[in-house]
């Protein structure tokens, strides 16, 4: 009986489906190849950067200033500048993004035109090229707010009307806003309806419910969003090209009105405008390695937290 069905099956295969079978295998093979290519390229990039960067990569490299016209020494100020940038950026973007996400999940009704406009804006923010944020930072923060502030309060003396770390961070916070909004929104949606109803049925108001039940339940989502935003902000260069990043500074920024060095910008400068590109190659690779470790590990943490939230929601 069994062998008989097998024979029938194989005869069917050999007569009818042989062609389609080969074709099918070919097609699946091609799609597999695409996946393989992407993953291979990813690991090749990673491998080469690790390989070329390992020589220079050390604690000393991370913790010392560049010396000798940036052809020797470390990247300490660039690292610190990047840290300050992402911290100020998070301070601006996280509350803003979280509140917007709360609006979208808790307050916005489905039919509301306003909510649809907010959603569309957030999605647009996510696709606006990063260089446009740079232009906006220059036109709005520096020329409009900064210079306006200087003429109004500093007697025209230039202090805020020029590129600095504050304007760069704020510019970056606009860029990373959608990242936070999306993460928090996702987390808020995993809070079960039953919990909201329980709170409301006890006579809690909407805001009390959000404050006491919804927000505590989405802390990890807010964290994921923040980490992803930091990872993004640490790696973006275009928005800070002309809003505050500096080529070289002998000291760390002392106030928000100072310029700063930045890892990504450092890589760009060293690779394209260094006085001796060949000689500084190991430094460039090591800097790239540091930036990559920073962004990838942050991303990994975010992915882990996020998958935990998702599992919990199930």
């Amino acid at each position: 009986m069994n062998t008989a069905t097998k024979e029938i099956n194989s005869s069917l295969l050999s007569t009818q489906n042989k062609n389609t079978d080969i074709k099918g295998k070919l097609i699946v093979g091609v799609t597999q190849l695409a996946v393989f290519t992407i993953i291979a390229v990813l690991f090749i990039i990673l491998g080469i950067i690790v390989y070329e960067g390992r020589e220079k990569f050390s604690w000393e490299f991370i913790s010392s200033f560049p010396t000798n016209g940036m052809t020797e020494g470390g990247i300490f100020p660039a690292l610190i500048g990047t840290f300050i940038l992402v911290i100020v950026m998070s301070i601006a973007a996280v509350p803003f993004g979280t509140i917007t996400a709360i609006y979208l999940t808790e307050y916005a009704s489905e039919s509301s035109k306003f909510a649809a406009a907010v959603r569309f804006s957030v999605r647009t923010l996510a696709v606006v090229p990063s260089i446009i944020f740079g232009l906006f930072g220059l036109g709005f923060f520096i020329q409009f707010i900064g210079a306006g502030f200087d003429t109004a309060f500093n007697g025209g003396q230039l202090r805020w009307g020029q590129p600095n770390i504050l304007w760069a961070s704020l510019t970056m916070s606009l860029l990373t806003l959608p990242v936070i909004i999306v993460s928090v929104e996702e987390a808020l949606k995993t809070i079960p309806r039953e919990l909201r109803e329980a709170s409301l049925a006890l006579g809690a108001t909407k805001w009390q419910t959000i404050k006491n039940v919804v927000l505590p339940g989405s802390i990890s989502g807010i964290m994921t969003g923040t980490i992803l935003a930091v990872s993004r902000g640490a790696g973006e260069v275009a928005p800070i090209l002309f809003t505050g990043a500096a080529y070289y500074l002998a000291s760390l920024p002392g106030s928000l009105s100072d310029q700063f060095m930045n890892l990504g910008y450092h890589i760009y400068i060293m690779a394209t405008q260094s006085s001796d590109v060949e000689k500084t190659m190991p430094i460039q690779f090591a800097t790239t390695l540091v930036l990559l470790i920073l962004t990838l590990s942050l991303n990994l943490v975010a992915v882990v937290i996020r998958s935990r939230i998702r599992r919990k929601a199930k």
Binding site: P192, E194, L195, E197, A198, S199, A201, L202, G203, A204, T205, Q208, N212, V213, P216, G217
Partner: peptide, 26 residues
């Protein structure tokens, strides 16, 4: 008018805080 739901839905808080919730919000 209080309500008890089909699926038990305690808050992810301590037993004490669950019972005290309504009073706290008042």
């Amino acid at each position: 008018i209080g309500m008890v739901f089909q699926k038990s839905n305690p808050f992810p808080k301590s037993i004490y805080e669950n019972v005290a919730y309504g009073s706290r919000i008042n």
